[in-house]
Design a protein around this nucleic acid. Structure first.
Length: 270
DNA sequence: CCGCCGCCCTGCTTGC
DNA sequence: TGCAAGCAGGGCGGCG
């Protein structure tokens, strides 16, 4: 599942490989995947556009075009953005492919068809609902604390709410809560100030460490070159049900919270 | 605003 | 062994 560290890794790879390229061909083989504003033809609008930059917002990859338009891509669980060279075979499950003048191609592959590649107009607001970026100065412990106040939602469910903090998914929510020694099912408002600080610090720490390892490949995630990340070897709780806690030795359990699998240690998370 | 639920979709795992 | 049913999950829209 591409979350913030995975999308960050993809974006860095894409920036290196496609900035400066000009779009010469577009192939959309699954219509619903490619979304454009009413009255604009996705394919026609992009021909001749130059890739000006590639950036990230939350879990979204933003391909910035010379006209000021953007291609905003959400990868959901199984989406991939992979750069291919002219001789490379078609990438499996590719639904949108951009062909560049150089002959290189950008494939948007998506097995479950949940992801979207959305064409956004130059002054169109697309991320108004998204919360604070956790790896910027704007994400302060005080701001985080204010998000939790009065909320009865389990803290883990709140961490997954993209309108609060943008970019945390199931893996890093579980990992940050373990690192901060907090039970995932605690109502957000019951976290003390010190616990909230620990969690704030843990979120920033785990995201930084995961980026350093080029993301987590437990299932489908690969980077812009089609390569797996390395953080799956550093996971403390995610997917480790039945195995001993690395901190206290108690068996890691899996429960369901907000309809999502949740891994944690009943020994040291309180 | 808040909390909750169902839907989307396919490949893999599980169970008979 | 073979097949069908169950499961997983991020974002979104709908409901109360």
């Amino acid at each position: 599942m591409p979350e913030l560290p995975e999308v960050e890794t993809i974006v860095r790879g894409l920036a290196h490989k496609i900035v400066g390229e000009t779009i010469a061909r577009i192939s959309v083989t699954l219509k619903k995947i490619a979304v454009a504003p009413k009255g604009i033809n996705f394919e026609r609008a992009l021909i001749g556009e130059k890739i000006a930059d590639v950036s990230r917002r939350g879990k979204y990859c933003v391909i910035e075009l010379s006209s000021g338009r953007k291609l905003v891509t959400s990868l959901r669980m199984t989406g991939r953005l992979v750069v291919l060279e002219s001789g490379d075979a078609p990438y499996p499950y590719t639904h949108v492919e951009l062909g560049f003048e150089s002959g290189n191609r950008l494939a948007f592959s998506e097995v479950r068809q949940f992801g979207r590649m959305r064409l956004v107009e130059p002054n169109e607001a697309w991320d108004g609902e998204l919360g604070v970026e956790p790896l910027t100065k704007a994400f302060t412990p005080e701001r985080f604390l204010s998000m939790l106040s009065g909320r009865t939602t389990p803290i883990k469910v709140l961490l997954l709410d993209q309108r609060r903090v943008a970019g945390i998914g199931n893996i890093y929510a579980c990992e940050a809560l373990w690192e901060a020694r907090i039970r995932p099912d605690r109502p957000a408002r019951t976290l003390t100030a010190p616990a909230t600080r620990r969690l704030h610090e843990a979120i920033v720490d785990v995201l930084h460490r995961a980026i350093q390892m080029r993301g987590t490949s437990v299932d489908d995630y690969v980077d812009a070159e089609g390569l797996k990340g390395g953080f799956q070897n550093s996971l403390a709780v995610y997917g480790r049900s039945g195995k001993p806690c690395l901190r206290c030795g108690r068996t890691i359990v899996r429960t369901v919270l907000g309809q999502r699998g949740t891994w944690w240690c009943g020994g040291c998370q309180r």
